[in-house]
C-alpha cells in the first residue's frame, strides 16, 4: 500500500526537491566545498606536507587527547546522570535536567572567561594551585576542562531521551528477581542503551574536536604545547598559509564525516531496538 501523501504531481515533487538541493547547496555545500577547493589547490603533495610539520602533529595529538579524555569523562557522567534522572522521582529533577542542558546555551567566550576567573590569578584558588605547581589554564588541563564543558550535555541528553522512552519495567523486574545494581546496569540497561550511548559519544567527539572559542581564550597559543588543531588552523591562516589551513580543515572534516557515519549507523540500531521493544 502506498501512502496517499506520495501521490503528488511530479511537477510539485521536482519543485520541492530542487528547493531542497538549493537550500542545502547554499547553506551547507558551498562553504564545505570552499574548504575542499582551497585545501587541495596546491595538490596532494602539499596536503601531506602540511602534516609532516611537528607543530601540526603535536596539535593533532593534543586535540585527540582532549577529545578522548572529555568523551570518557562525559560518558561516565552521562550514564550516571541519565540513570539518576530516568530511574527515580525526586524534587528538583527538572531543575537538574535544565542545569545539565545549560552548557548548550552558554557562549564559548563566557566559558573561557569563567575558567579564567576560576583558575587564573584573579581566583582565590590560585595561590593554592601555584603552591602545588598545578597549571590549569594556559596548559593541557584547562583545554580539557573547557572541552568537557562545551560537550557536557551530549551523552546525557541522548541517553535520557531513550531511557525515558524505555521505562523502568525491565530494571524493576530484574531487581525483584534478585539482581544487584551492577548486574541490572550491565545485563539489563546497558544492552538497551548501548547504541544511544555510542550516538552520544559521536556527537560529543564531533563537538570536542572542533571547539574553538573557549579553548582559544584559555589555551595561551603556545606552539607545540597548547595549540589544538582548530587553533593551529587559525595560526596557519594568519601566517599567509591559507592552503595549509584548509588542508588541516579537510582532515578534521574527514574525521567528522567518519564519526557522523558511525552516528547514522547507531541511529538505525536505536530504531531497531525501540521497534523491537514495541513489538
Amino acid at each position: 500500500m502506498t501512502p496517499i501523501i506520495h501521490k503528488q504531481t511530479t511537477l510539485k515533487r521536482s519543485l520541492l526537491l530542487t528547493l531542497t538541493w538549493l537550500v542545502f547547496g547554499v547553506i551547507f555545500l558551498a562553504p564545505l566545498s570552499i574548504i575542499l577547493i582551497e585545501g587541495l589547490s596546491k595538490g596532494l603533495g602539499f596536503f601531506w606536507h602540511t602534516f609532516a610539520n611537528p607543530v601540526a602533529l603535536s596539535a593533532l595529538k593534543l586535540t585527540l587527547f582532549a577529545t578522548i579524555v572529555s568523551v570518557i569523562l562525559n560518558v561516565i557522567f552521562g550514564v550516571m546522570a541519565a540513570w539518576c534522572i530516568t530511574k527515580y522521582e525526586f524534587v528538583g529533577k527538572s531543575l537538574l535536567t535544565t542545569l545539565i542542558d545549560l552548557p548548550f546555551s552558554i557562549s564559548p567566550i563566557i566559558v573561557g572567561l569563567i575558567y579564567t576567573l576560576l583558575y587564573g590569578s584573579q581566583s582565590i584558588l590560585y595561590p593554592f594551585l601555584m603552591e602545588y605547581n598545578l597549571q590549569v589554564i594556559y596548559a593541557v588541563p584547562g583545554i580539557v576542562l573547557a572541552t568537557i564543558f562545551v560537550t557536557f550535555p551530549f551523552v546525557a541528553r541522548s541517553l535520557i531521551s531513550l531511557m525515558q522512552e524505555q521505562g523502568n519495567t525491565e530494571e524493576e523486574a530484574a531487581r525483584l528477581l534478585g539482581a544487584n545494581g551492577w548486574q541490572i546496569f550491565w545485563l539489563v540497561t546497558f544492552p538497551n542503551i548501548r547504541w544511544a550511548l555510542l550516538h552520544g559519544v559521536t556527537m560529543c567527539t564531533a563537538r570536542a574536536m572542533g571547539e574553538f572559542g573557549a579553548v582559544s581564550i584559555i589555551s595561551g597559543h603556545i606552539e607545540g604545547l597548547t595549540n589544538t588543531l582548530p587553533l593551529q588552523i587559525e595560526i596557519l591562516y594568519n601566517e599567509y598559509n591559507a592552503t595549509a589551513a584548509f588542508s588541516i580543515s579537510i582532515i578534521l572534516l574527514i574525521m567528522a564525516m567518519i564519526i557522523l557515519f558511525v552516528r547514522q549507523w547507531c541511529e538505525r540500531k536505536i530504531t531497531h531496538v525501540t521497534s523491537d521493544a514495541e513489538q
Binding site: 587527547f65 579524555v69 570518557i72 569523562l73 561516565i76 605547581n133 598545578l134 597549571q135 590549569v136 596548559a139 593541557v140 588541563p141 580539557v144
Partner: peptide
C-alpha cells in the same frame, strides 16, 4: 572503569 579514571587523572594535572 575506576582504574581507567585513576589513570587519566594524573594526565589531567600535568606539572610545570
Amino acid at each position: 572503569i575506576f582504574a581507567a579514571f585513576l589513570m587519566v587523572a594524573p594526565l589531567f594535572f600535568q606539572t610545570t
